[in-house]
């Protein structure tokens, strides 16, 4: 692939000291993700995928090994530098949405830009509205988070992850709290974003989701067990069409 690398991991190890013991959560993981890939990271609980996600998201730093995000080495960065890096380069989508309570959709989406002093309040509002329109919530800008369904809340969360035009979108079990139909709606959205050239990393323990991504990385016991390009990529929109429409 001629695309430039967005994520480069070289021999990532992460040890946790728990009491007297040292737990090796990651034991030397290396891979590179290029711009425009839609990667699923799979693994059972305890495989190290949460730890890997935290490192990829610059919330945590590896004990050893090198991690470059969009060419920038992360391991030696300070807490503040990583906060700024997250703000500019990463869009998070969480399983439980993590929207601010009693806050409108547009204000939730504006949040990352609030921490970017280069973006003024007018541009911030415009970009938030654009992002919400992109995820199909252009008509719900001023709905509060508690007035929305799970699928709508997750769309707001995706808009929030898009608003800073990140180098990579990190989704952590982003469909985990949703019913099947809504899950596929969200997957359709991710596939659309991928088609637009977005780099997406989707962490899940659900093997079905992997079929809709371009590449699957499987972890077990803190090591990379499998890393393969998917030959046949299913279309989530087709699958969605086969699902029965829920009755009101």
């Amino acid at each position: 692939m001629a695309q430039k690398p967005v994520i480069e991991l070289e021999g990532i190890r992460r040890d946790f000291v728990v009491g007297e013991e040292t737990v090796h959560a990651l034991r030397g993981v290396s891979f590179t993700i290029h711009e425009g890939e839609f990667v699923t990271i799979m693994g059972t609980s305890g495989s190290g995928k949460s730890t890997l996600l935290n490192i990829l998201g610059c919330l945590d730093t590896p004990t050893s090994g090198e991690y470059r995000l969009d060419g920038i080495p992360v391991r030696t960065m300070s807490k503040t530098q990583r906060a700024v890096l997250r703000n500019r380069k990463i869009g998070f989508v969480f399983q439980s949405y993590n929207l601010l309570a009693k806050t409108t959709a547009v204000e939730n989406v504006e949040l990352p830009l609030m921490y970017n002093s280069e973006v003024g309040s007018r541009e911030r509002r415009e970009r938030a509205v654009t992002a919400l329109q992109r995820v199909g919530l252009g008509d719900r800008l001023n709905h509060k988070s508690n007035q929305m369904s799970g699928g709508q809340m997750q769309r707001v969360a995706i808009a929030r992850a898009l608003v800073n035009d990140p180098a990579v979108i990190l989704a952590d079990e982003a469909t985990g709290n949703l019913d099947t139909r809504t899950s596929f709606e969200i997957l359709v959205l991710f596939q659309q974003l991928h088609a637009e050239g977005r780099t997406i990393i989707f962490v899940t323990h659900n093997p079905e989701i992997a079929q809709y991504s371009t590449r699957t990385i499987t972890l077990s016991d803190g090591k990379l067990r499998e890393d393969r390009m998917n030959d046949t990529i299913l279309n989530a929109a087709d699958k969605l069409a086969t699902l029965p429409v829920e009755e009101e």
Binding site: G57, V84, N87, F94, N98, P112, Y115, R160, N164
Partner: peptide
């Protein structure tokens, strides 16, 4: 706490 975590994940610095 969760709100603080979220703010940090989207780029809030300690000082923020």
């Amino acid at each position: 706490t969760r709100e603080i975590g979220l703010r940090m994940s989207v780029g809030a610095r300690t000082v923020d």
